[in-house]
């Protein structure tokens, strides 16, 4: 009986600590992203952009359909994210102008940022793509607790999971060249 209780308590602790042990540092290409639940964007236009139902409160990546994804982990408090914000907006604009809107989607997660903090950042830089809050660092931990900005390019698998194709920590040279790298990584020509 003692042995049984010992094993059960040990397993319980392992499960409880699983999120903390899941990812330590940035992902590598080939890694599969863990399942996660994200808050839906506030702006109905952004909800529509992601292809979600209008009244949805949360979503998972598999709700976004069979599309490649670019996710930026950012923070309102991060000077590099502030400096790069216009460039990331340009990446979004380039995706639209190249007619790739139905093939690849872009959104950001505000690590440690409340709804207000995300809104301030979005207003300051006129961010045209969805940004969602992560006030308690729950999503940030899933993404390995990396610094910011952190960019991931992902492709869906047949089982509804997402595989990392590009994992980029920090700033980038130019919107045009970084998008080229992203598109190559996710096999979009």
């Amino acid at each position: 009986m003692i042995r049984f209780l010992s094993i059960i308590s040990c397993l319980t602790l392992l499960v409880a600590s699983a999120p903390a042990l899941a990812q330590d540092g940035p992902f590598s290409p080939g890694d599969v992203l863990p399942q996660m639940e994200l808050p839906a964007p506030e702006d109905p236009a952004h909800v529509q952009y992601l292809g979600l139902k209008p009244d949805v409160q949360t979503f998972t990546l598999s709700d976004l359909g069979d599309k490649a994804l670019v996710i930026e982990i950012f923070s309102m408090y991060c000077p590099i994210c502030q400096r790069e914000a216009p460039q990331v907006n340009e990446i979004f604009a380039l995706i639209q102008s190249k007619g790739l809107n139905d093939k690849i989607k872009l959104f950001g997660i505000g690590a440690g940022n409340s709804e207000l903090e995300v809104r301030v950042f979005a207003d300051k830089y006129a961010t045209p793509f969805p940004l969602v809050p992560d006030p308690d660092y729950v999503l940030h931990k899933i993404f390995g607790g990396a610094g910011t900005p952190y960019f991931l390019a992902l492709v869906p698998t047949s089982s509804g999971e997402y595989t990392v194709r590009l994992s980029h920590l920090g700033g980038f040279d130019s919107a045009e060249s970084f998008l080229k790298t992203i598109l190559k990584a996710v096999d979009i020509k």
């Binding site: 600590s17 903390a20 982990i73 923070s75 590099i80 994210c81 308690d136 700033g171």
Partner: peptide, 24 residues
Amino acid sequence: TLFLAFILLISMILQIPQVVAAEF
């Protein structure tokens, strides 16, 4: 088991959430 549990608990407590700019 108790020792393992203690180590795991300590590792969980030390997970202080914070995010700092990558280049910094």
